[in-house]
Simulated assay, not measured.
Amino acid sequence: MSAALQEETRARQEEATLPDPLIGPHTIQEWLDLPSPEDGSSVELIFGHFHVTPPPSGEHQLAVTRLIRPMEDSISAAGRTDLYAVIGVGVKISSTLRNGFIPDVVIMDRPPTGASFPAEALRLAVEVWSPGNTRNEREAKMAAYAVAGVPFLWTISRKGDHPGLELTAHRLHGDQYAVDNTVRSAGPTTITAAPIPVTLDLADLVF
C-alpha cells in the first residue's frame, strides 16, 4: 500500500472515531475545503473549532521571513539534503482531535509538494505569537503539537513592551514539551532543540 493511500485510510479511520464531547463539530476535511480568506487572514482548526487570525503585521512577517535564511544555512552546513525550511504550510495535526494548523515556519523531512502535510512530516514547528493569540490558544496549540509527536517547537514573542523578541525552543519528552533553549538577547546563538543545530541572531528578526 502506498504512503498516500495509507495516510488516507488512517485519516478516514480517525474521522470515524467519535470525538470527545468538548471537541468542536468541524473536521480536518472541512478545514481543508475552506476557501482562502480574501483579506489575508488565516483560519486554523483547534480542537474542532475554527479560529480566524487577522492578516499578520509587517513586523511579524519580517521575523518569519528572516528565520528562513539561518535555517537554510544550518541545513546546508549539516549536509542534510532531506530537510526543507518552509513558511506557512497547512498541517493536518490530528484528525481524531480535529486540529489543523498553519505554523509560521516549519522544517520538514520531505519535499514541500502539495497543499497540506501530515504532522509526521514536521521535524520542527515555529509559532510567532501575535498579541491576538490568547493564552488558551497558545496552550491548546502547544498541547496539540505535543500529542501529534512533533519533536521540536519554537515559540517567539515580544518581551512585554520592549522592541526585542524572546525565543523559547522546546524539545518533546514523552507527550510534553520541555524548554531546551531560551534566547532573550541579541547576538549569534546556536539552538540545539532542532533537527540540526541552528545559529541565529534575534536582532536580525526585528527592525
Rank of each mutant, 00 (worst) to 15 (best):
residue 16 A to Q: 14
residue 68 I to W: 09
residue 74 S to Y: 04
residue 195 P to L: 08
residue 85 A to T: 08
residue 136 N to G: 12
residue 180 D to K: 12
residue 17 T to R: 14
residue 110 R to H: 03
residue 89 V to T: 00
residue 90 G to C: 04
residue 20 D to R: 15
residue 57 S to Y: 09
residue 139 E to L: 14
residue 142 M to N: 05
residue 46 I to H: 09
residue 148 A to T: 01
residue 111 P to H: 01
residue 89 V to F: 05
residue 114 G to M: 02
residue 45 L to I: 14
residue 33 D to A: 15
residue 6 Q to R: 15
residue 51 H to G: 01
residue 186 A to C: 11
residue 113 T to Y: 02
residue 14 E to G: 07
residue 171 R to F: 06
residue 17 T to Q: 07
residue 78 A to K: 11
residue 198 V to Y: 03
residue 156 I to M: 14
residue 100 G to P: 07
residue 56 P to Y: 02
residue 17 T to Y: 04
residue 126 V to T: 08
residue 105 V to S: 07
residue 111 P to L: 05
residue 180 D to A: 08
residue 102 I to R: 13
residue 95 S to T: 07
residue 14 E to Y: 08
residue 190 T to E: 03
residue 61 Q to C: 13
residue 138 R to E: 01
residue 128 V to K: 11
residue 166 E to A: 11
residue 55 P to A: 00
residue 83 L to S: 13
residue 203 A to I: 05
residue 39 D to F: 08
residue 81 T to A: 14
residue 58 G to H: 00
residue 65 T to N: 11
residue 148 A to F: 08
residue 113 T to K: 03
residue 47 F to E: 12
residue 194 A to M: 13
residue 173 H to A: 10
residue 171 R to V: 15
residue 85 A to E: 00
residue 54 P to L: 02
residue 185 S to L: 11
residue 90 G to Y: 06
residue 60 H to R: 07
residue 85 A to I: 13
residue 156 I to F: 09
residue 115 A to T: 03
residue 164 G to R: 08
residue 177 Y to K: 12
residue 117 F to H: 03
residue 65 T to S: 12
residue 183 V to A: 06
residue 117 F to D: 00
residue 54 P to D: 06
residue 168 T to G: 11
residue 153 L to Y: 10
residue 184 R to G: 07
residue 76 S to T: 08
residue 169 A to R: 09
residue 22 L to W: 06
residue 164 G to V: 09
residue 16 A to M: 14
residue 4 A to L: 01
residue 143 A to H: 12
residue 8 E to N: 10
residue 129 W to L: 14
residue 129 W to I: 01
residue 170 H to A: 09
residue 50 F to R: 00
residue 129 W to C: 03
residue 112 P to I: 06
residue 196 I to G: 08
residue 61 Q to L: 15
residue 72 E to W: 11
residue 200 L to A: 04
residue 164 G to E: 06
residue 63 A to S: 14
residue 52 V to A: 11
residue 149 G to M: 00
residue 149 G to R: 02
residue 109 D to K: 12
residue 58 G to K: 02
residue 80 R to M: 05
residue 108 M to I: 01
residue 51 H to F: 06
residue 158 R to C: 01
residue 164 G to T: 01
residue 161 D to W: 07
residue 167 L to S: 05
residue 91 V to R: 01
residue 9 T to C: 06
residue 141 K to W: 02
residue 50 F to G: 02
residue 169 A to S: 09
residue 54 P to W: 00
residue 80 R to D: 03
residue 8 E to S: 13
residue 38 E to A: 15
residue 98 R to P: 05
residue 106 V to Q: 04
residue 143 A to P: 05
residue 98 R to I: 02
residue 200 L to G: 05
residue 155 T to K: 03
residue 190 T to L: 05
residue 104 D to F: 02
